[in-house]
Design a protein around this nucleic acid. Structure first.
Length: 155
DNA sequence: GCCAACGTTGGC
DNA sequence: GCCAACGTTGGC
């Protein structure tokens, strides 16, 4: 079975690579996605075992912080039903949930590859996450980009 | 804190 | 269905 590859952004103040390492089974549900394109990637594109570049965003040194794998099929994000959650969505119901997530399991924490380094790497110039104005929290990663990052940039 | 980029909302 | 206003993302 051929797997796909993804880059998933997380704010380390919410869920860092260390939080993932400390979680039960080193697995966390990817809560909080409220963008339809990103949701559709999880719903329609992801399969258990797909490779994930775990990316730290909105922090001092944004960049790739670890490798992970998709660890579940898609299921409803429970935070959408919780009025106390900042991800609460009053228009969503358990009968017709709007937002889905997958579980993500740590493969390994890596040395950080800063965003600046990614941008300086000509081989990665076409990576979707690096293209102008990209704001998606989940983007597909081309196999050649995955191979370059995991094979040549990570120790 | 700024602001570019882009998604969403809602009036019409 | 258009599109202006508004909100959000996320690097800097």
């Amino acid at each position: 079975m051929t797997h796909r590859y993804w880059l998933m952004k997380s704010e380390p103040e919410e869920a860092s690579i260390d939080d993932l390492a400390a979680a039960a089974h080193q697995t966390l549900p990817w809560t909080g996605v409220r963008n339809y394109q990103a949701r559709n990637f999880m719903r329609d594109g992801m399969k258990i075992g797909d490779g994930v570049l775990f990316y730290h965003s909105s922090c001092a040194v944004p960049g790739i912080a670890g490798l992970a794998t998709v660890a579940s099929t898609p299921y409803p994000d429970p935070t959408q039903f919780d009025p106390k959650s900042k991800y609460f969505d009053p228009k969503s119901t358990p009968e017709n949930p709007r937002w889905l997530l997958v579980d993500v399991k740590l493969d390994r924490k890596t040395s950080l590859i800063p965003l600046t380094t990614l941008r300086e790497t000509p081989e990665l110039a076409q990576m979707q996450v690096l293209t102008r104005g990209n704001r998606l929290s989940i983007t597909p990663v081309a196999p050649e980009h995955w191979r370059y990052i995991t094979g040549r940039m990570l120790k």
